[in-house]
Design a binder for these strands. Structure first.
Lengths: 215, 215, 215, 215
DNA sequence: GATGAATGAGTATTCATTCAT
DNA sequence: TATGAATGAATACTCATTCAT
């Protein structure tokens, strides 16, 4: 039960935000823990301190809610990466920065990683297609940076669409293994080696990163 | 464990194999199409031409059946790759051959790919852990080849465990996108570029492959 | 009860009538299409361009609204029949006229028919009883005309209450079949034969209608 | 909870019949009392002494179960009428007999009447169409008898399809009113008058019934 | 008069698993 | 070995009604 709504605007609801937001936050938790199918609406609802009716007032269905949530979260993450790139113009450094920011963010927010990367597939072909945009969005981000690097002559011309898919999958798997590990080591430890692998795959000598000149 | 179905063809069932095999085959189909959770035992059973009771005579639970099936299939695939490597001793060629065989097999058997790669995650942390051995087995295969190449001096010393994870993820994602595409192009078209990306990532000039000398 | 919506057109709503009327009209449509139980308040409200709160300001409950609507509509229809009888005093002609007017009106307003005749039963005994007054009102109309005819000696004395029930049921079923037919023919085509059946049932030679003398 | 199944074939289940039959019987009761929509599956199931799973093992859905039940019941009733007609060849008497048997059966089995006649409409156009076959079956029975009478010269040629619809509606309404009455009088009291009304409607002098000669 | 967010009891349906035969 | 009827907990979704603003 939520605390009674008081009319002083201070703590309008249990934890200060609208029901819609509270539902999405609760859903994040449950989805991260249980996956899409086992994520129980009743649990999400009771965790959010709202009601069945409220849920269906704000969302047309469980599926739409999850799709919307993943969309929101992935957009937020992409934005965060964009911001980290704002002050960097050297293409190779931008690429490295994008990788670092993604990995760093996921390492700080396991639930986010669990949801965006793991619980987004394996629901049958029909559902998987619904979740595909999340993949596409991350891949597009990587591809754009690779294209910039190609244009700047920093890496050789190549199939950047394929490379970005490959990178995404690589990040995905490394994070997945980290998430499922019983006693995971810090994700950051693997970062330098992973970054080197990815850069080399598109033809960059990782050592070149250090010497990259400003434009 | 039931006694092995007698292999003398005398009283085999309708289509010539034991109930256990027929169930596993039916399960392959349904799992590929629907994913783990939505894969319905009733459908698997009716497709296999057996009965509920027969299913539970041969398998202790749906979960164990699926884990066993994935285990069997991945073992079979690994064996196939091993066989393709039998007559090749040059480490870089072995690596390329492993990639090629994996990709070729998946491209010919979409269902297999769907099951082993896609429907193996996103079921909640507990279940995902159960499916992890499949990942491990493929990664181990790749890692062994990388280690051989390192030992032979064909590639520089490096974290081959990480590299093999990365490779697996890369293959996974590329295949996933191919599986979910509305109008997929042949997977083989992407193969050379993908192979080049992977090889470069561990420090091999793809061109070196051609010139690799026999031991 | 709310004060009557002011009839000066000053601040009438979007389409010129009060919320109450707009709700009733929307309810007609939805009830005709879906039946009582499946008629969704949300749909009625959005169709009427009002709000939940407005609905419950004007009506105490869905049930009362529907009972009131059926009451209103049946009263209106009865009034229409009365008007058609105003200038006719010959009892047999009055009877025929009543049938004709009812059938003609229903044939022009399918929704009305659907609602008054079809969606008024089958909701369980308790609800059905609530809808009974509609039946009674129509039956009373018919019975009154039959009684007049008996009094005038135009038809033999008989159980006019039963006859009027029977007539109502007959009309009901014929209209129902017309409403549910995939490719309905004009209702008017069946009218002469139906009229003849009904008149004969109470002992009138349909041919007598033509020769009926003025009082 | 059903009594434990005993292996002596005598009282295999709670009340001696299979689950399917017990469900249908329970459904009859609940449908008669509550109508289609309000008929609660939980109640039907607990009344039948079975379980949710058992219900869905025997029937694909509530709707199909009800359609099947009505079909079965109406078929049974039609059969009963047919049997009552077996030894009567005089067409007018057959007609009267059919009416009498229908009315008598309904008067003895209120629930049957409630279900077949009342709770079969008013669920929205889509559902109503599903229930239409029940109407058709009864109307066809009546029409056949009317056609026989026409062929035998016992009644004048006419639109017997329309007449049978009308008769059905008439019977329906009379029974409905009887069912919904607070203090119903015996249905049989109204029977002679009703029979007379119906016979006259198709041009038979009810008195002629008595004198009808054997073929 | 009007709004729309919130409520929560109610409902049909799914499905892995059991067990008497 | 095999059968299939039976079980019942789980689950997404509906919808009339309330009430603070």
């Amino acid at each position: 039960m939520p605390a009674a709504t008081s009319s002083n605007g201070k703590d309008a609801r249990a934890n200060g935000r609208g029901a819609r937001e509270r539902i999405l936050e609760a859903a994040s938790k449950v989805l991260a823990e249980r996956g899409y199918q086992r994520a129980n609406l009743d649990e999400i609802i009771s965790l959010s301190g709202t009601s069945k009716g409220s849920f269906y007032f704000h969302f047309p269905s469980k599926e739409q809610m999850v799709v919307g949530l993943l969309d929101q979260l992935s957009a937020r993450l992409v934005k965060k990466v964009e911001q980290s790139l704002e002050k960097e113009e050297r293409p190779l450094r931008r690429i490295a920065l994008a990788i670092d920011t993604l990995m760093y963010t996921f390492s700080r927010r396991r639930k986010l990683a669990q949801m965006l990367l793991v619980n987004v597939a394996g629901q049958g072909k029909a559902m998987d297609r619904k979740f595909l945009p999340v993949h596409r969005r991350f891949a597009a981000l990587i591809q754009r940076e690779l294209d910039l690097a190609v244009a700047a002559g920093a890496i050789p011309p190549q199939d950047t669409a394929l490379a970005s898919q490959m990178w995404l999958g690589a990040l995905h798997e490394v994070i997945l293994r980290w998430l499922l590990a019983e006693h995971p080591t810090a994700l950051s430890e693997a970062l330098p080696a992973l970054r080197a692998l990815l850069l080399r795959s598109v033809g960059v000598d990782p050592a070149a990163l250090k010497k990259e000149p400003r434009a």
